[in-house]
Design a protein around this nucleic acid. Structure first.
Length: 1061
RNA sequence: GCCUUGGUGGCGGAAUUGGUAGACGCGCUGGAUUCAAAAUCCAGUGACUUCGGUCGUGCGGGUUCGAUUCCCGCCCAAGGUACCA
């Protein structure tokens, strides 16, 4: 009996592992989701931002967007669209390179393992992205997979680079054009009639001059026009690491890794002339359906401002100064020109060294030196520290001819505008603060405004005074007049300025696309497109060379032979027929800027994608990804697409029609806590309070240098007491102001005794027990608190740490002592952070699929909350979603012993109402990307259908299609049990019919002064007056009125009744 | 600093146009079933309460018959800030 019982149980159970495996294999075998480039159906292109395949594998945060886009893609298939839903890998990147530096493994190898799975050299088993993605049941068309590090792919990245190199931006035609046309123009007319976006320093030349130039000279000039060009740009240079660092790799002026000094340094690098597209990038935003915040951040990034450039002549002063210099500045407030009382140059400004007077030289040089140590972000963010130096030089005011002192200050950045500002302290707060700090005059040019406390930056109510011909004018008129007068003087002109800077395109890294570039006489030459791809060369080590060249400097075969048309050994370089190749590689965004077109025709060897494929798929209809890409990938991609569109290679001008941001899933990190002690020593021959500082700088005569050093290291030793861990609760109580409690005593007992006991003998060992005094009491500020990440897999959901596992985790923790709470348990503290390997808070989707199934994971990730919002991951609640699926399964298994059963007889009215209510809600939700509420709707529907004992095939079949985008495996299984032989994936979406959900009555909430007191069911077709009469006649109304006469009765038919009075 | 987003029970969240705050799920409490456990099912669950009510959507104001929703001023957290992707 018992045996039979369990057997039938098993029959009726929801065996998600088997079902999911079965359907994943079915989809792969039948190529269910393979998209065709020709179809009668309307097309729909759904794209996810492709992942970087890291060694840590997929965590639960990654699939969030993929699940959402998959739900949408599957929904669109039900709606009759030919859906393109591809996936690939952004497989060039820094992590693989850093891993290569540490372990010597080739990044290509680790990348392949990360994607395809396997075992790395360290013996770590890696599941691989592909397998992880597959088990979630995505409807990707894997036949179109791309990898940016695949030579067959980066051939096209290199090809695009060449297209950009071979073009320039014609401001008259407002589009990019081939450089060949520019050369023609130069040869016949020179450059005076060309309006191009180009370097600032191009000089005018005639056709004769151009034709007389040498080849190298001509190339040099052309480089100033090309859409990608070589230029000196500032970088964070770390001499010790021999490499350039990202801003966020620099912390307080030193490298995050290793703490080495970092300086700002100029380097010759490839740049992309994105500034040529500033206006079009701005204009294009109005044509695309993106979230407003994302558009805002691109708008701000481009930073259009209208104003004027003004040139200030530098006055001769001292002996050596010629006075031939002018300083151009850009200002958005030319109306305040008479308020200028000084000028400020960026410390890096090229004129600084030329105009500084001998007396000021030392101060200025010291300041410039100090500035190179601060990162750009620090300089902008830090508005509190005001610093600068006077150059000793003066400029001449264009109108008053008064001398204006020239200062340098690090709040002015070299890369913004012209790297110089005309400072108007009465109108700009930063200028105001600077002037106050250095005691510079603050002339007031605003009528009736008090500027004794702060600058006045309001434009609307401005009335200019003390400004000669601008007196009495408002902002608009004064601006116009000022520009007119400046132009008359030849000292300035009206200008639109963009904050957007050209994008640096070189990286001193190994694991990126090689440039298809070699150098002849120092001038870059492109390798012809037919010889691409130019393969990334093999190198022995992935570090920069000893003399500071990028890693490719180590390649033995990295020269271009123009006769053999192939890469040859560097030893053959003769600069006649064999030339050195470019040593930099391309940045991360190179490979991701046009990948959406490659998916359309991924195996095409002759083009990025065929014309037909591009014509059919056009651009991405729905793009899903994180908002962190707002000003990187999403801006660069738009720029490249516009440029390639201009050049006739693409048929669309915007890559992504609609974009949805998915929020990050955050991890719940666990922390264990340690305590350290600040012990203060002072020598007995020194006055109290003068401690022997760390580093043994003390001037004590009774101590030897060795003893001072020993004391210092002793201090260091107790600064953090290793291996003693305290339960979170203990620390919490200890940190309280009045910490005279049991928990605190426990801590004090442990730490003080430990230190005190050893300290005596340690002082004796050094031989200073009589020569120093140490301060040692329990003042809170004498303690240091440290927290360290503990792996979350060692912590249960009650925040209790498995002490044994933690001890065995790393050798340094083997001898750990744990101070537990009163319940003998050791608690960690929790904090919500980004999910990352280094924070040991990564949750992998693998075990969730194993334990609950992919359908549960999919539903649960959608159920967690709104897609766009960031949310912490928590396993609490997943059981609810899982048991929902079990209930769903049961709904179709109501036969004897849980056998599958549906009936052909008609559906009840209630069941039809439930179904159609659900169709409406789910359809609305999917269209609005509100997936979390859909899941709730499914739960309600299953609860209702179960209560109604619904067996109707009509209802149950339609319901399966509704849920199939969310939980495709269970839907397919039940669909086939219903007798269908084809996949559910293209079954038409059920049609909503109003008649099934129409209500005849409404449960009216009756409010008194806005507070709901009771509800009253009334027919929906009652008029306002009828409703009022019915409500006033109700016995409860009298009760709540307590004898008062209502002043007013508000009736909103179908909504609410509110009685006031 | 600047730009952007968010703040609702013990927790994740819902409330689509200003109209019943807390749907749905978790957790918790009680019960049924079971030798027992798991699973499942049923009921309850914002706080306070003199059981009449009162309070309640980060804080302080305002508009309105009515505000989580609109307006003004703050506080806090997260993301971005140009070489992480």
């Amino acid at each position: 009996m018992r045996f039979i019982f369990t057997e039938t149980q098993a029959m009726s159970n929801y065996h998600f592992n088997d079902i999911e495996k079965k359907w994943q294999e079915y989809w792969a075998k039948n190529e269910t989701f393979k998209a065709s480039n020709t179809s009668e159906k309307p097309k729909y292109y759904v794209l996810d931002m492709f992942p970087y395949p890291s060694g840590a594998g997929l965590h639960v945060g990654h699939p969030l967007g993929y699940i959402a886009s998959d739900v949408y893609a599957r929904y669109k298939r039900h709606k009759g669209f030919n859906v393109l839903h591809p996936m690939g890998y952004d497989s060039f990147g820094l992590p693989a390179e850093q891993y290569a530096i540490q372990t010597g493994q080739h990044p290509a190898q680790t990348t392949t393992v990360n994607i395809e799975g396997g075992t790395d050299k360290q013996g770590n088993k890696i599941a691989g992205y592909r397998k992880q993605l597959d088990q979630i049941g995505f409807s990707f068309d894997w036949s179109r997979e791309v990898r940016t590090s695949d030579p067959g792919y980066y051939k096209w990245t290199q090809w695009i680079f060449i297209q950009l190199f071979e073009s320039w931006y014609d401001e008259k035609a407002n589009k990019a054009r081939p450089v060949s046309e520019l050369i023609e123009h130069f040869a016949t007319e020179g450059n005076t009639t060309v309006q191009a976006t180009c370097d600032e320093d191009v000089t005018e030349f005639s056709a004769e001059i151009w034709n007389a130039y040498s080849e190298t000279e001509q190339q040099e000039v052309l480089l100033k026009y090309r859409l990608t060009y070589l230029a000196e740009t500032e970088v964070n240079w770390c001499p010790a690491l021999g490499t350039v660092l990202a801003n966020d790799e620099v912390v307080n002026g030193v490298s995050e890794r290793g703490g080495h000094p970092v300086v700002r340094k100029k380097m010759k690098q490839w740049s992309m002339r994105i500034t040529a597209y500033a206006q079009r990038l701005l204009d294009g935003l109005t044509t695309i359906d993106w979230p407003q915040p994302l558009k805002d951040s691109q708008t701000n990034w481009i930073g259009r401002s209208e104003g004027a450039t003004v040139s200030f002549k530098v006055l001769p002063s001292g002996e050596d100064l010629g006075g031939d210099f002018t300083i151009p500045v850009f200002t958005t407030r030319p109306d305040t020109i008479f308020g200028v009382s000084f000028m400020t140059l960026a410390p890096e400004h090229e004129l600084v060294s030329k105009i500084t007077t001998p007396e000021q030289k030392a101060e200025v040089e010291a300041y410039v030196e100090a500035t190179t140590k601060r990162s750009e972000r620090e300089r902008i963010a830090d508005v509190k520290t005001i610093s600068g130096a006077f150059t000793g030089a003066y400029a001449e005011h264009p109108f008053t001819k008064e001398p204006i002192p020239i200062w340098i200050g690090d709040y002015v950045l070299a890369g913004y505008g012209t790297g110089a500002v005309m400072s108007v302290p009465c109108g700009d707060q930063r200028d105001y603060d600077f002037a106050k700090h250095f005691d510079i005059e603050i002339p007031n040019i605003f009528d009736g405004v008090d500027i004794s406390e702060e600058a006045y930056s309001d434009k609307e109510n401005t009335k200019i005074t003390n400004s000669d011909f601008l007196n009495g004018l408002n902002y608009k008129k004064a601006t116009k007049t000022a520009i007119y007068e400046l132009e008359k003087l030849g000292a300035g002109t009206g200008k639109i300025n963009y904050r957007l800077r050209d994008a640096v395109f070189s990286r001193q890294r190994y694991w990126g696309e090689p440039f298809p570039v070699y150098y002849k006489n120092g001038m870059p030459q492109m390798i012809a497109a037919k010889h691409l791809p130019l393969h990334l060369p093999e190198i022995s080590e992935y570090l920069p060379t000893e003399d500071g060249q990028p890693p490719l400097g180590r390649a033995e075969n990295w020269a271009w032979d123009v006769e053999k048309l192939s890469v040859v050994s560097c030893e053959l370089i003769d600069n006649e027929t064999v030339f050195p190749l470019e040593l930099n590689t391309m940045p991360g965004w190179a490979g991701s800027s046009c990948y959406m077109f490659r998916y359309m025709d991924p195996n095409n060897d002759d083009a990025l994608a065929s014309k037909e494929a591009m014509q059919y798929w056009e651009n991405v209809d729905l793009y899903l990804g994180g908002s962190e890409h707002a000003t990187g990938h999403l801006l660069y991609s738009r720029f490249w697409v516009k440029a390639l569109y201009d050049l006739g290679h693409l048929q669309v001008e915007e890559p992504f029609k609609k974009l949805i941001n998915q929020g990050m899933i955050l991890g719940e990190s666990a922390f264990v806590h340690r305590i350290g002690y600040n012990i203060l020593f002072w020598a007995n021959d020194k006055p109290e309070g003068k401690t022997i500082s760390r580093g043994a700088h003390g001037t004590s005569k009774v101590l030897t240098d060795t003893q001072k050093d020993a004391l210092s290291s002793l201090q260091e030793k107790y600064r953090i007491i290793e291996n003693y861990f305290f339960s979170e609760n203990l620390i919490h109580h200890f940190k309280k102001k009045n910490n005279d409690n049991e928990e605190s005593k426990k801590i004090r007992g442990a730490v003080d005794n430990l230190v005190f006991k050893n300290l005596k003998s340690e002082l004796e060992e050094i031989g200073v027990q009589d020569k120093v005094t140490f301060q040692f009491h329990g003042l809170l500020n004498k303690y240091n608190f440290y927290k360290t990440h503990a792996p979350i897999e060692y912590v249960n959901d009650k925040n209790v740490l498995d002490q044994e596992k933690f001890k065995n985790w790393q050798e340094q923790y083997n001898d750990s002592t744990f101070y537990t709470d009163s319940d003998e348990k050791f608690y960690v503290s929790r904090e919500v952070e980004k999910m990352s390997k280094s924070k040991h808070n990564v949750v992998s989707p693998d075990d969730i699929c194993e334990r609950f199934g992919a359908d549960t994971l999919r539903l649960y990730e959608m159920f967690l909350g709104p897609l766009e919002q960031a949310k912490p991951w928590s396993m609490a609640g997943i059981t609810g979603v899982h048991s929902f699926l079990k209930k769903l399964w049961k709904l179709y298994h109501t036969g004897n012993d849980g056998a599958f059963e549906v009936s052909a007889t008609g559906a009840s009215k209630d069941s039809l109402k439930t179904l159609h209510k659900t169709i409406k809600k789910v359809e609305d939700d999917i269209e609005n990307f509100s997936f979390n509420t859909s899941v709730s709707t499914f739960m309600i529907a299953v609860n209702e259908l179960t209560a109604q004992k619904c067996r109707s095939r009509e209802v149950l079949e339609s319901f399966l299609i509704l849920i199939s985008p969310y939980a495709p495996h269970i839907a397919e299984e039940l669909w086939s049990k219903l007798g269908h032989s084809a996949s559910i994936s293209e079954a038409p979406f059920p049609k909503f019919e109003e008649k099934h959900v129409k209500e005849s009555t409404k449960e009216y909430p009756i409010s008194f002064n806005g507070k709901m007191r009771f509800t009253l069911e009334l027919p929906l077709d009652l008029s306002k007056d009828e409703i009022e009469t019915a409500v006033m006649a109700h016995e409860k109304t009298a009760h709540y009125l307590e004898g008062r006469t209502p002043k007013k009765v508000i009736v909103v038919p179908g909504k609410i009744v509110n009685i006031v009075g």
